[in-house]
Simulated assay, not measured.
Amino acid sequence: MTALGRHLLVEYTGCDATILADLARITTAMLEAARASGATIVTHSFHHFSPHGISGAVIIAESHLAIHTWPEHCFAAVDFFSCGPVDMDRGLAVLRAAIGATDETRMALERGPLRAVNLG
């Protein structure tokens, strides 16, 4: 069976804590990232936790783009899964700039069947 989708797990460090705690800015950044990738946005939902942190997802026709932030650690974890022709790298570059990340680590997976593509 050939892969049914591509799944990127991304960890951003050195992020702007103020942005990571701002529900409106994270929502906007995630929607802009999805648009920049060429994905078709279906819906989105984001939640601000007390005292801090945001979790949310943009549901796209091709699958999803999700985030969880830890402002107190200047850290964000992102999950981008697509079974369609989207430019994940472009979308993630937009997101990285929007949250002010100084570094990122990625793990790429092929889904269906699961296979690690690269780490780094």
Rank of each mutant, 00 (worst) to 15 (best):
Thr102Phe: 11
Leu95Lys: 00
Val86Gln: 12
Val94Lys: 06
Gly84Trp: 04
Gly112Gln: 13
Asp89Ala: 10
Phe75Cys: 04
Ala34Met: 09
Ala3His: 15
Ala57Lys: 13
Leu109Asn: 06
Gly14Leu: 13
Ala66Thr: 09
Ala24Phe: 06
Gly53Ile: 01
Met1Ile: 13
Leu23Gln: 12
Leu20Glu: 05
Val94Pro: 01
His47Asn: 09
Ile19Phe: 06
Ala29His: 10
Pro113Val: 06
Pro113Gly: 04
Leu31Cys: 14
Val78Gln: 04
Ser82Leu: 08
Ile67Thr: 02
Ile54Glu: 10
Leu114Asn: 07
Leu4Lys: 15
Arg6Thr: 13
Met88His: 08
His64Tyr: 00
Ala98Lys: 00
Thr2Gly: 14
Arg35Leu: 08
Ile26Leu: 11
Thr43Trp: 02
Thr18Cys: 12
Pro85Tyr: 07
Ile67Tyr: 03
Thr27Pro: 09
Val94Gly: 00
His48Cys: 06
His47Ile: 09
Gly91Phe: 03
Ser55Glu: 04
Ala17Asn: 03
His47Asp: 10
Asp103Thr: 09
Ser82Tyr: 05
Ile41Tyr: 04
Asp87Glu: 08
Asp79Lys: 01
Thr40Lys: 05
His7Asp: 04
Asp89Phe: 10
Cys83Gln: 05
Ala34Asp: 15
Ala17Glu: 00
Ser45Val: 05
Ala101Cys: 05
Ala34Ile: 07
Thr2Asp: 13
Met88Gly: 07
Phe46Gly: 12
Ala116Tyr: 03
Thr28Lys: 01
His47Arg: 08
Cys83Trp: 07
Ala36Glu: 10
Gly5His: 09
Phe46His: 11
His7Pro: 02
Phe80Asp: 03
Ala33Val: 01
Asp16Ser: 07
Thr2Val: 13
Ile99Tyr: 01
His7Phe: 04
Arg25Phe: 06
Ile67Gln: 00
Thr40Asp: 06
His48Trp: 05
Ser37Val: 14
Ala57Pro: 09
Ser55Ala: 12
Arg25Asp: 12
Ala24Arg: 08
Asp103Cys: 11
His73Ile: 00
Thr18Pro: 09
Met30Phe: 11
Ile54Lys: 03
Ala76Lys: 02
Gly100Arg: 01
Ala33Asn: 03
Ile60Cys: 14
Glu32Arg: 03
Ala24Ser: 14
Ala66Gln: 00
Leu109Ser: 06
Glu72Ser: 05
Ala116Gly: 00
Asp16Ala: 05
Arg35Lys: 07
